[in-house]
Write a protein that binds this DNA or RNA. Sequence first.
DNA 1: CCCACGACCTGTGGGC
DNA 2: TGCCCACAGGTCGTGG
Length: 287
Amino acid sequence: MPELPEVETVRRGLEPCLAGARLARVEARRPDLRFPLPHKFAARLTGARIERLDRRGKYLVAPLSTGETLIMHLGMTGRFQVEGGEVRRRPGAFVQAAAADARHAHLVFETDAGALITYFDPRRFGFMDLVSGDAQVTYPTFLAMGPEPLGNQFHGPHLLEAFEGRRQAVKTLLLDQTIVAGLGNIYVCEALHRARIAPSAPAGHIALIRLERLASAVRGVLDAAIEAGGSSLRDYADASGAMGYFQHEFRVYGREGEGCPTPGCKGRVRREVHSGRSTFFCATCQR
DNA sequence: CCCACGACCTGTGGGC
DNA sequence: TGCCCACAGGTCGTGG
């Protein structure tokens, strides 16, 4: 799924055609994604103006002129395709993603400017919600969520406090959205490698100086990934169909057996499966 | 509290 | 070429 950099890339791709636009037509082509769509979903959206397109962790958040807020999560395979309207594409940056399968075109949004935004999600792990008021300060999921990793509330001391007394593997806790928002399997592996911390290290035993390094590594890898337009794995593409290219800059993810990229390190990238999820790391330089 | 695992759902890639 | 299995970015719930 899209982790934070991919969701941010999608947000930036959708913002020009959604923010400030009025939804002239909304079509739900099935009653549910991961969960049932909100009651009268299409009717409540039709005619509303989208005031902004924000992001919180891996969620897209769209406050509406009706006083409600549209909340969207892309799950593992959710993506938007934009056609028509005032879609801007950077010259040379456009690579057509694999043709989207119409069977998985679950939602269609049409703006008053004529942009057609289609939500595809083959696995349907994505979901949408529509709630009253300012979700950023009322939606329970957001209230429980940890700080934005690119914001100024995320730093070594935050991790020290969040990890205090906890013996779970640091990798597990970094995936916990209530500790820090937006990280997923890929960027956790990449950040731990950059910080030279073993994924299995008991979180509560890591010294502050190493947690400072970890926080910096998280910011560094997310910044670089956003700069690259996110990562394109399998069928993921940004809102205009352009492919991100950060996957070519992964240092460990998907690189089992390759030499460790840390300068001077003679180790090899290993892959281990814990709780059904792959962890990629170098046992030589990550301690 | 911790942890492993299964469930949700579909597609794809690799091995044979 | 065809088949089958392992595996995939996330989250949630259960049971030990």
